[in-house]
Design a protein around this nucleic acid. Sequence first.
DNA 1: CCAGTTGTGGGTTAAAGTGGGTAAAAAATA
DNA 2: TATTTTTTACCCACTTTAACCCACAACTGG
Lengths: 149, 149
Amino acid sequence: MSSFKGSFNYTVDNKGRINIPAKMRKNLAPEANNSFVVTRGFENCIFVYPNDEWAKREAELGKLQQTNKDDRLFTRLLLQYATDVELDGQYRIVLPKELIQYANIENEVFILGAFDRIEVWNPNEYKKYLDSQQEDYLTVASKIFEKKD
Amino acid sequence: MSSFKGSFNYTVDNKGRINIPAKMRKNLAPEANNSFVVTRGFENCIFVYPNDEWAKREAELGKLQQTNKDDRLFTRLLLQYATDVELDGQYRIVLPKELIQYANIENEVFILGAFDRIEVWNPNEYKKYLDSQQEDYLTVASKIFEKKD
DNA sequence: CCAGTTGTGGGTTAAAGTGGGTAAAAAATA
DNA sequence: TATTTTTTACCCACTTTAACCCACAACTGG
C-alpha cells in the first residue's frame, strides 16, 4: 500500500509537468505501476492517487446501480475530473489544464504527502487555507488524538 | 473490462462524427473489438457502450420478465434506439441522427467517462443537468474518499 | 571527492483531433 | 428493371498537441 508524508516546494514547467518527489516515489506500491489518477481535491488543491489507491475508490462506484438517478449523478461528478497520468522518463506527471486552473497554480507548487494521496497546491493557497482555519496544530492534534473510551 | 473516466470537449462534424478521446481508447477492453452500441441515455445524453459492456446490459435485459408490463417497456425503449457503430480509421464513430436530435447536440459535445460507458452531451445540457441537482462534487467526493474500515 | 540520483528545461517526432473528397452501396423514383 | 438521388464507408490531408528523448546543473550519500 502506498503511503505518503512530507512536503516539498517544486516547480511546474510550461508544459504543466511536476516532478514526483523522490521520497514519495520510494513509498509507491509496486501495484501502482507508476501510474496515478489526478482529480479535483477539497479546498482548491489537486489530489494525486496512485493507481492502487484509486482502484479502491472506483470499487465503490462499481457497487452503484446505474438505473438509479442519484447513483448516476454520483458517478458523473466523481469521474468528470479524474484523469489517468503516468510517470515519464524523469519521474514527472502532467497536470491537466483544468485542474491547474482549478487549483490556481502558476509556476510553483507545494506538494504535500497526505497518507494515501499526494496533494498539489498553489503555495499561497495553502498558506491562506491554514490562515483561514482558526485552530492551530496543537488544538487540532489534541482533538484528534483525544482518548475515547 | 472497459472503464472510462475524465471529460472532454470535442466537436461534431457535419457528418455527425465524433472522435473517441485517446485516453478512453486506452481503457477499451480488447474484447470490445473497437465496436460500440450507442443508445438513448438517461437525462438527454447519448450512452456509448463498448461491445463487452453492452453484452452485460443485454444479459440484464434477458433476466427481465417479459410478461411484466414495465419490463417490456424498458426493454423496448432501450433497444429501440440501440445502434451498432465501429471506429473508423481516425478513431471516430458516427452518431445516429435521431440520437443527435434527442440529445440536442449541435456542433460541440461534452464527452464524459462514466465508468462502464461513455456519455455524449450537449455541453449546455450537462451544465443545466448539474445545476438541477442538489448534490455537488464536494459532497459526493467526501463520501467516496471516506475511509471505510 | 566522486558517482549516481534528483530536479528542471527544451527539441523532435509521432499521435491526436478535425475536415473534406470520392466511390461504393442503398434507397428512392420513374 | 433501369436510372437517379441520397447516404454511407473509406480514404487522404492538415494543424495542433502531447509523448518521448536528450541534456545538464545541483545535490546527496558513501
